[in-house]
Amino acid sequence: MDIDKVFKALADPTRRRLLDQLHSESGQTLTALCEHMDMSRQAVTQHLQQLEEANLVAIVWQGREKLHYLNPVPLHEIYTRWIEKFEHGRLDALHNLKQRLEGDDNDKT
């Protein structure tokens, strides 16, 4: 899948809210999702469509009900490609900062 679609899908507050909704309760219908959204059913449908095209939302049919699931697999791919490899330096910096600050505290007491 196209990673550009994933970033584009994430670059919108409404779509991120929909993902949050699905994270708190996965497997929701359009009607259930609309209850939390202050916009038309049609607008929510379009946002969900974009999330689906980016593979961030997966659909499962249960009888006649269309259930929307958060699919975290593309997020994991972004994590390994764009976050994990930059993380080590930052964690070291935080660790050093923590040591310095806590060291100062220790000096005062």
Partner: peptide
Amino acid sequence: MTKPDFVYVTYI
């Protein structure tokens, strides 16, 4: 079938 708890999709 009960409603799934998690669904994961990947394209390979």
